[in-house]
Amino acid sequence: MLVLFGILVIIASIVLGLIVLVQNPKGGGLSGSFGGVGTQLMGVKQTTDVLEKGTWIFAGVVGLLCILSPKFIPTGDAESKNADLIKNAPASNPVKSQNTGTLPGAAQPTTP
């Protein structure tokens, strides 16, 4: 689920960047680059309104996704449950060595 939020944030950020880049900081915007075609189809005022609304919408989407995504980060509860299971598991009997002798060439223990 966290990967889905990450992908959505990246897509919304790219779209937001493209919308901001299309706008002209001097107020001309998209309609100024088409030489009057925007005025005939939608009007200059309406084009800048659409781009401004799109900027606010996608900025809100990015912000909302960034605020909601930490709710889906897995916590350490699963790890602590596994640690409790391992700690409370019955101890297995260790295998005792049947060979009490020493290896050839090994130092013999001395008794006091």
Rank of each mutant, 00 (worst) to 15 (best):
A106M: 14
V3R: 04
G76H: 13
L21Q: 07
V20T: 15
P70H: 02
F58N: 13
T39N: 11
P94C: 15
G32V: 08
L103M: 13
G17I: 14
V15K: 06
I67T: 05
L4G: 10
K71G: 02
G101R: 06
V3N: 01
Q23H: 15
P74Q: 09
G38E: 13
D49W: 07
L16P: 06
N24T: 11
V20C: 14
G54K: 06
G63T: 06
A83N: 02
K53F: 08
T100M: 11
N88D: 12
A59T: 12
T39K: 12
V22M: 10
G6Q: 10
A107K: 05
V37W: 12
L65Q: 00
L64M: 12
Q46E: 07
E79M: 08
N99Y: 14
G35C: 10
I7A: 13
G54C: 06
T100P: 13
G32A: 15
P112H: 02
K45L: 01
T75K: 10
A83L: 09
F34H: 14
G54H: 12
K45I: 02
L8I: 01
G35M: 05
I73A: 09
V15Y: 08
Q40S: 09
P70S: 15
N24Y: 05
L2P: 00
V95L: 14
Q40P: 00
A83K: 09
K45R: 06
L51I: 01
M1S: 03
G76D: 15
K26G: 05
T47E: 11
Q23R: 14
G27M: 03
Q23T: 11
T111P: 00
L2Q: 03
W56Y: 13
K45M: 05
L65P: 01
I19R: 07
M42A: 14
Q98S: 09
D77P: 06
